[in-house]
Computed example of a mutant assay.
Amino acid sequence: MAVATYPTEPLLKKPLPAGKPRDWYVSHNRRLKAMRLAIALLDSGVYLPSQAPDGRIRSTAARIGIHPPSDTTCRMVRFLIRYGR
């Protein structure tokens, strides 16, 4: 079984495409935030959505240094944990 390796240098960020509706940018950033939170929770041993109430997701956000997520983002995190296994 191969061991996952992570890049030693940060990935270059590309600017978001211009001209999209505001809702597109909001949902794009929400998905990125939910993905970061789901990865942090999985790394800390949370493997089931029932183990990730809103309080735990928000405390994880504080621990990794991002703004507290909304209720919608918390639901998205649980969805990613459920179907990302």
Rank of each mutant, 00 (worst) to 15 (best):
V77A: 03
P69Y: 05
R82L: 12
K14F: 12
T60K: 13
G19T: 04
Y25V: 05
R63G: 13
S70F: 03
P15E: 11
R75N: 10
L32Y: 02
T60W: 00
T60S: 08
R58N: 07
L41Y: 12
S59P: 01
R75T: 09
R30W: 00
L80E: 00
V26S: 01
S27P: 01
M1P: 04
L16T: 01
K14N: 04
S50N: 07
A62D: 08
P49K: 04
G45T: 00
I66R: 03
L11E: 13
G19L: 05
N29W: 06
A61K: 08
T72H: 10
T72G: 12
R78Q: 13
F79K: 14
T73C: 14
D23A: 15
R82F: 06
Y47A: 14
G65S: 05
K14Q: 09
L41H: 08
P10L: 08
R75A: 08
S70E: 01
A52M: 02
E9F: 05
T5D: 07
D71I: 05
H28N: 07
G55V: 09
M35A: 14
P53C: 04
S27A: 09
I66W: 08
L32P: 01
R63E: 13
T73H: 01
P69E: 03
T8G: 06
H67M: 03
H28L: 02
S59C: 03
I66N: 03
F79M: 10
A2H: 08
I57M: 06
Y25A: 07
P21H: 10
T60H: 07
Y25S: 05
G45P: 00
R82H: 10
A62F: 05
S27C: 01
L41N: 10
G19H: 02
S50T: 14
G55H: 03
M35D: 04
V26F: 04
N29Q: 13
I66S: 01
R85L: 10
E9S: 11
G55S: 14
Y6Q: 11
L16A: 07
A62K: 14
R58A: 13
D23N: 11
L42R: 13
V26T: 07
R75Q: 06
H28T: 11
T72M: 05
I81M: 08
I39R: 15
D43S: 11
K20I: 03
T8D: 08
R78T: 11
R63Q: 14
T60Q: 12
L80C: 00
K13M: 09
P15M: 04
V3W: 03
Q51A: 11
S70T: 15
D54A: 15
R56N: 00
A34S: 15
A2E: 14
Y6M: 09
K14Y: 09
C74S: 09
A4I: 14
A18C: 02
A40F: 02
P49Y: 02
P21D: 11
A34F: 04
R82W: 02
P69M: 09
A40M: 06
S59M: 13
R22K: 15
P15S: 11
L42I: 08
L42P: 00
L42M: 10
D54R: 01
P7Y: 05
W24H: 13
T5P: 00
Y25M: 04
A18K: 13
P49W: 01
D54I: 10
Y47W: 09
L37R: 06
L48A: 12
L16C: 01
K33S: 12
A62I: 13
I57N: 04
L11G: 11
R82I: 00
R63S: 15
R85T: 07
